Simulated assay, not measured.
Amino acid sequence: MTSTTSLFSPVEADLRLLTENLKNLVGARHPILYAAAEHLFGARGKQVRPAIVLLLSKATLLDREITPRHRRLAEITEMIHTASLVHDDVVDESEVRRGIATVHSLFGNRVAVLAGDFLFAQSSWYLANLDNLEVVKLLSKVIMDLAEGEIRQGMNRFDTELSIEAYLEKSYYKTASLIANSSKAVGILSEVEPEIVEDLYEYGRHIGLAFQIVDDILDFTSSSESLGKPAASDLKSGNLTAPALYALAEKPALGVAIEREFAQEGDLEQAIALIHDSTGIQQARKLATHHAKLAVGHLESLAASPARQTLIKLADYVVSRLY
């Protein structure tokens, strides 16, 4: 299976530069923040979001160099994403993410909340300094969407009536909005035609949804070691994702266990077994593949280039993580 390291080789040097810039932008003025920045922006993440921004920049600028504004957009995108993870880990009381201790487990809740706040504030400052009102509006809306997604998830815990449409809407707010709107922002900064700007948005939206659905499937099919967090942690906390929602239509006993919030001994284990015994995971795979294909369709308006080809391969990579 292709790794993101080899997949993103066209922007490998750009991503290395981005990581160093982020450490300096965030932590220059305070030792604790610098320590948190070192931890956050080390080699722990796949950097999918800034990689998409950089690849779309190359694909829209073609023979021109990536501009400082495009690079800053990639940095802002990773800052917003990382800030949301720091806050999510506090809310979820997660001790590890991707196999590494979370900021709040290392530095305490107070520092984690402040570090997340600081990252959101920094991203807003650098966003304003791009001097493009349309891009400012897009990325500011993303920060609102992230909060909206978390609130919806919290309000819908253990809700067996949740529809796939509501799940996808929440997934858009929590994951796809950032990828979609930062992709659209690339088109605006590259001054491409409005139709292409919308295609970039749709590519980011569908890739983001596919990515989230795949992550939700892996929560049931991967080990805790490969996930870097406890397996089936979403289900345990009452966050019903695509595999569980599809399985609910086939397995009435699953709904019973969820509605009593796994209060009886063996409820959670039985629920996981019922999901595996249903077609829930297969249906979720089809949904992820559907969105990955839709994403690729929206790249047809871009001229052929190595960067465009990598963006097509990224859609294949997202789904290939399941096999």
Rank of each mutant, 00 (worst) to 15 (best):
V48C: 08
H206N: 03
R152C: 09
A307P: 02
H298G: 01
E134N: 11
H104G: 06
D219T: 14
L254Y: 04
L54H: 07
S177F: 04
S226E: 15
S233C: 01
S140W: 09
P50H: 04
V11M: 03
N132W: 06
R97H: 01
A263Y: 02
L240N: 02
K137I: 08
F211Q: 00
S6P: 03
A115W: 02
Q212F: 05
R29V: 08
L299W: 00
A128F: 10
E202W: 04
V86N: 04
I188R: 03
P10G: 10
P50D: 11
I80M: 12
P10S: 11
E12T: 12
L302I: 04
L322M: 13
K251N: 10
R71L: 12
V53Q: 06
A253P: 11
N109V: 12
S171E: 02
V53E: 01
L17D: 14
A244P: 03
Q270V: 09
G149V: 00
I281S: 14
L55F: 02
S3Q: 12
L302V: 02
T82F: 00
R285I: 06
E165P: 14
A257Q: 05
L15W: 04
M79K: 13
E93C: 06
D14C: 09
F118T: 11
R321N: 12
D145G: 03
T4V: 14
A292F: 00
M144C: 13
P50W: 01
F220V: 09
R16H: 15
S84N: 09
S237K: 15
N129C: 04
A59N: 07
A185V: 08
Q282H: 15
L138I: 10
I66E: 04
G108L: 13
H276L: 13
A295L: 03
A176M: 00
Y126D: 13
L130C: 08
N181K: 15
K141F: 12
G45E: 07
R321H: 09
Q282N: 14
G108P: 14
S190P: 11
V318I: 12
G297R: 05
I80D: 08
V192F: 04
E78I: 11
G228H: 07
R285D: 02
A147R: 04
H87I: 08
A112P: 07
D215T: 02
F211T: 00
T175G: 03
A249G: 03
F120P: 07
T241H: 04
R97M: 03
N181S: 14
I100K: 10
F220W: 10
Q264C: 05
E193C: 12
S301A: 13
E195C: 08
